[in-house]
Design a binder for these strands. Structure first.
Lengths: 152, 152
DNA sequence: TTTATATTGGTAAATTTTTCTGTAAAAGTT
DNA sequence: AACTTTTACAGAAAAATTTACCAATATAAA
């Protein structure tokens, strides 16, 4: 982070908002020419400050309107965690999975097309993983805020 | 969704993985020429299937390595919810906020630079919002899986 | 079958990306 | 202080991509 000056940070701020901005536009915003902006972007990519560029889809339009956070605890902790993580990676419905501190072991974000699909996911996919103890679902009623940008 | 054929879905799948892919490359993958692929992308943008293109940064490199999920319940439900949501939108540390079903009202994803910063956030920013009842934090120990792509 | 509509392929202009060269300022060395 | 090295920027040219346009083809509807 200390290798980033204010110009770099401005570039990252813009690209977090809009990855499709042209170097020319960005240069104009920063009162620079194309060259330095272009080189800085390449440097930020090479140094992996920028991990990837992605298109964000409308989950309702692509028929994945149903979101749930699912808390999972393992019955015999240590020995089955690796296996659980392995299985989770294979499940397309799992958008995110975190190992968290506290009584619960894992927090999963699940995205599917309907409650029925969610039921099937829990019943026939998640529950099939060995040694799951507790399993608790919290349905998302409304997305109040969601941003992909860090406040740098 | 019914307005999307298999070609559209393939395009969306690719753009979710890599927004910087050129029309030429994409056309080659789909065994089409540039024109139809270009027009389809524009159509998907206009129809808002694609909401935005963003750069994803490395949270460790930009000094936001600490993530926590924070459960919030309101003391007097109905009347203070709007105000709470309003205040949440102003807080840069809040990456995501969902109104969820169940005992807890809101689930927040918080991203900061350190535990100290997290403490300050809870103590001096989140707690300052009126009529919060319960407040519970679950620290993320490890990110097992995180994808921005829907399985379409 | 005919008409209308949508989709594709091909081409060319406009724009952007990428590379290259030169200059100036800053930092480090003798 | 003089010299080298490094770094950041500007400008321009080359390469590649985006964008707009038109004709040809396929698809659906009348």
């Amino acid at each position: 982070m200390e290798t980033l000056d204010e110009i770099d940070k401005s570039i990252l701020r813009e690209l977090q908002k809009n990855a499709k901005i042209t170097t020319k536009e960005l240069a104009s915003k920063l009162n620079l020419t194309i060259s330095p902006v272009y080189e800085r972007i390449k440097r930020l990519e090479n140094m992996k400050f920028i991990k990837e560029y992605v298109a964000i889809l409308d989950k309702n339009l692509v028929n994945k309107p149903f979101t749930s956070y699912c808390q999972v605890s393992m019955r015999y902790h240590e020995e089955y965690i690796d296996k659980f993580e392995e299985e989770i990676l294979k499940l397309d419905e799992v958008q995110e999975c975190y190992h968290i501190a506290g009584q619960i072991d894992f927090l999963l974000k699940i995205n599917v097309g309907s409650i029925d699909e969610y039921h099937d996911f829990i019943r026939y996919k998640l529950s099939k993983i060995n040694n799951i103890g507790l399993l608790n679902s919290a349905f998302v009623l409304k997305e109040i805020k969601k941003t992909y940008a860090y406040n740098i």
